[in-house]
C-alpha cells in the first residue's frame, strides 16, 4: 500500500473550473520563475540572438524507483507509457512524455501535469506488490530550455561536465553541477538543451544564466 495524493486527480481540472469546495479564487499554479515575468521579458527582448532561454510551463514530474524489481517497473512503464525504461544516461521519449535515466534504480518522467496522477495509479496497479516507488515531484523543479548557437558556450561557463556535442548528444541526460547548484541536463537536439533545476534554486540559476549569456546576446522566449 502506498499513498497517492488522491486530490491530485481533480486539482488540475479546477485550474480552469471554479472550485466547488472553496469560495476562494481558482487555484493558480506558479512556476518557480513566475516572479521573473518571463512573458513580459520575452516581449521586450529581440529574438534570434546567441542564446534563447525559456521556462517551460508546469509539467507533471514523477520519480520512478526500482532495483531488484526493475523488470516489473519496466514492464509497467512499457504498458502504460509505451516506452522502455531508458538505459544509463539516456532518455525514452514518446509524445510529450520523456523518461530520463537518473541512477541505476531511478528515472524521472515528465508529462502533462494532469496526466501524472493517472500514470502513477496505473503503474502502481500493474506493479502490484513489486518493490518499486513512485514519487510525484512536479512542484519541486523548474524546467528551462536553452537554445541557440551559443547555448553550448553558456553551458561550458556553467558546468564542468563535458558538454561538447560529441559527448552530450541528443537524447543524453546527465545529473551534474551547474554553477553552484545542480541540474538534470538533457540535450534535446543540436543547440537545444533542457535544464531541470530544483525549484528553490531556480532564481539563482536564472540570475546566473543572464550573466553567463550576456556576451552572446540573450533572448527570452515564452515556454
Amino acid at each position: 500500500m502506498h499513498s497517492i495524493l488522491m486530490s491530485e486527480q481533480y486539482a488540475h481540472n479546477s485550474v480552469t473550473q471554479k472550485n466547488e469546495f472553496a469560495d476562494s479564487a481558482i487555484p493558480m499554479m506558479e512556476t518557480a520563475l513566475h516572479h521573473a515575468q518571463m512573458s513580459k521579458l520575452a516581449a521586450r527582448t529581440d529574438s534570434g540572438l546567441g542564446v534563447s532561454l525559456s521556462e517551460l510551463p508546469m509539467a507533471g514530474l514523477l520519480v520512478f524507483r526500482a532495483s531488484k524489481d526493475k523488470a516489473a517497473l519496466a514492464k509497467a512503464v512499457e504498458s502504460v507509457l509505451q516506452v522502455s525504461l531508458p538505459e544509463t544516461l539516456s532518455t525514452s521519449i514518446v509524445g510529450d512524455k520523456c523518461v530520463r535515466w537518473i541512477a541505476p534504480d531511478e528515472w524521472l518522467l515528465s508529462c502533462a501535469i494532469d496526466e501524472a496522477y493517472t500514470i502513477e495509479k496505473s503503474i502502481r496497479e500493474i506493479t502490484g506488490d513489486a518493490s518499486i516507488a513512485i514519487v510525484n515531484v512536479a512542484g519541486g523543479f523548474s524546467a528551462l530550455t536553452l537554445q541557440g548557437p551559443s547555448a553550448v558556450d553558456v553551458l561550458r561557463k556553467s558546468t564542468a561536465y563535458d558538454v561538447h556535442p560529441q559527448n552530450l548528444m541528443p537524447g543524453k541526460v546527465v545529473n551534474t553541477v551547474f554553477a553552484k547548484a545542480q541540474v538534470c541536463l538533457r540535450c534535446v537536439e543540436e543547440n537545444h538543451y533542457e535544464l531541470i533545476i530544483r525549484r528553490s534554486f531556480a532564481d539563482y540559476v536564472w540570475h546566473w544564466l543572464q550573466v553567463a549569456s550576456a556576451e552572446y546576446g540573450l533572448s527570452i522566449e515564452v515556454g
Binding site: T88, L89, A103, P104, A160, Y161, V174, T176, V177
Partner: peptide, 11 residues
C-alpha cells in the same frame, strides 16, 4: 561505476 562515465571531482 554507476553512471559509467568519468566525472569531475566537484560532483
Amino acid at each position: 561505476p554507476y553512471c559509467e562515465e568519468h566525472r569531475e571531482e566537484d560532483e
